[in-house]
Amino acid sequence: MQPESVPNQAGELPHELIDNERFLADYRLSGAPRLSAVTRQRLEEAVRKSRSLEELLDLGFTVDELYMGVVHGVVYVDLKRELLREPQNLLFHSRALPRPR
């Protein structure tokens, strides 16, 4: 089940986005580790089909590699709607998915 985005006043950012940006802050630091070319390629191949965190961990990725993949644009997570700190429902995609109308 996706967390509900809290309605906000014009100009306010969704609380999920703010929470996720805080969560990813350490991965954005200039001294943070980078994904190796091999890991980057494996991750791109793994998310050709949307996958859960658990599925990607079962494929041998670490949590740090997955979150670095989000920061560096290798994988996509809807940071405005999903909470990274609640990984039980988290899905990783190769690119942004169209939103339902």
Rank of each mutant, 00 (worst) to 15 (best):
Q2H: 05
E4M: 06
S5N: 08
V6D: 10
N8A: 11
N8I: 05
E12S: 03
L13R: 09
P14F: 04
H15N: 10
I18R: 03
D19P: 04
D19K: 13
D19H: 13
E21P: 02
R22P: 01
F23Q: 12
F23C: 11
A25K: 12
A25H: 09
A25C: 03
A25D: 06
D26P: 00
R28V: 01
R28K: 13
L29N: 05
P33D: 01
R34E: 07
A37D: 10
V38P: 04
Q41H: 07
Q41I: 02
L43P: 04
E44L: 15
E44H: 11
E45N: 13
A46F: 10
V47E: 04
K49D: 10
K49N: 09
K49Y: 07
S50K: 08
S52I: 02
S52Q: 03
L53T: 10
L53F: 09
E54W: 13
E54I: 10
F61S: 03
F61Q: 02
T62K: 01
T62C: 00
T62I: 00
V63E: 14
V63D: 09
D64V: 00
L66I: 00
L66S: 00
M68S: 14
H72D: 13
Y76G: 07
Y76R: 07
V77P: 08
V77F: 08
V77C: 10
L79Y: 01
R81E: 12
R85G: 00
E86G: 01
E86N: 03
H93Q: 14
R95S: 15
L97C: 13
P100F: 13
R101L: 15
R101T: 11
